[in-house]
Simulated assay, not measured.
Amino acid sequence: MTAVELRLHRWANALLADAPAGGARAKLVEFLVFGAKQAWACVFGAAMLAILVVARLWYPDDAALARNDALVLAAVAIQIVMVVAKLETGRELLVIVMFHVVDTVMEIFKTNVGSWEYPGDGVLHIGAVPLYTGFMYAAVGSYLVRVYRLFDLTFVRYPPRWATAIVAVLVYVNFFSHHYTLDIRWLLVAAVIALYARTVMHFRVFRGVHRMPILVAFVGVAFFIWVAENIGTASGAWLYPGQVDDWHVVPLSKLVAWFLLMIISVVMVAWVYKPVEPRARR
Rank of each mutant, 00 (worst) to 15 (best):
A237C: 03
A77K: 01
R279N: 10
V147D: 09
T164M: 01
A66N: 07
F223E: 03
L16Q: 09
A36V: 09
M268H: 00
A128T: 12
G90T: 08
T2D: 08
A3E: 11
P275D: 11
A168P: 00
G22E: 12
A128Y: 02
F224D: 02
Y59A: 06
A197P: 01
M1V: 08
F31A: 13
G141I: 09
L87G: 12
L150R: 14
V54A: 15
N174R: 03
P60I: 09
R211D: 09
P160V: 00
W40G: 00
N230C: 10
N13P: 00
E92R: 07
V189K: 02
R149H: 14
W11G: 12
V105M: 14
R281I: 12
Y180S: 14
A70V: 07
R279E: 15
F31N: 01
A55H: 14
R25K: 04
P60R: 05
W116M: 06
Y118D: 05
A270K: 03
Y148M: 10
F175N: 12
W226H: 14
A70N: 07
A39I: 07
I108P: 03
I184V: 13
F203A: 13
V113A: 06
G236P: 04
H210E: 07
V147R: 12
A26H: 02
G22D: 11
V54I: 15
V43W: 05
W58L: 15
V95Q: 02
A222L: 10
E277F: 12
Q243C: 08
P251C: 08
I193T: 06
A234V: 03
I225K: 02
A39G: 09
A55G: 15
D62I: 02
V256C: 04
I126W: 13
V95P: 00
E5V: 01
V72R: 02
V140M: 14
K86L: 01
I51A: 02
V205L: 11
M201S: 11
R25N: 00
A14E: 12
H210N: 06
I126D: 00
I193C: 06
S235L: 04
L93S: 13
R56G: 13
A165I: 00
G232N: 13
V169D: 00
W162F: 10
A237I: 03
Y180I: 11
L93D: 03
V156F: 12
R204K: 15
E229R: 10
L260F: 01
F135N: 12
S235T: 08
V113W: 06
V250R: 02
V33M: 05
W238M: 03
V156M: 13
R211M: 05
Y273K: 12
T164W: 01
H202Q: 15
Y148E: 15
M82A: 15
A165C: 05
